[in-house]
Amino acid sequence: MREYLLESFLNLPPTGTLEVLKVGDAFDVDHPFVVSFKFSHPDGFHLQAGEGILASFGLPAVPSSIQKAGKPRQFPVQWNGVGKLEYRACIRVPWRVTPVLPSLSVHTPFRSAEWTAKAVAADGKSALELTFHQQCKDAFFDFNDREKGLLEWKKDRNQIKTLLNDGLAFKLNL
């Protein structure tokens, strides 16, 4: 679990710390499998060019590119979209900030998702309230529609890139 969290989920730098507090019973199918952990990131809110960039914890990764740049698509595009993600985060930062991307709706053949970001400022500090709800979907674009599938995939990819690039960016109000 520790390795999974470090390598696949949190992507912490080597100086980050992680303490796994509780791991539920994976064989108990009557109850949700709950994992509790505590971690620290040495640069979790990275200041850059008048913005603070929050490190991504638990949000979906950018889908990989399915076609090399400059090459036409040869094969159908098929995606088995399994799972639902409910993400809620409350993070306090020691600056007054405004979200760059207060909301985003993603509706592609591969997923439906909603993102909201709020920053409640007080005494020169802010409490960030972030939510992300995602439902993955199955999609299939046959040979004749492969270029369309590729286009939709790129759109989906760009939306997630926007989420990760802009959703996690906060303007500093100095």
Partner: peptide, 10 residues
């Protein structure tokens, strides 16, 4: 070679 550019706000 060539690499796709990263789109986005910046």
């Amino acid at each position: 070679g060539q690499v796709e550019t990263e789109g986005g706000r910046q």
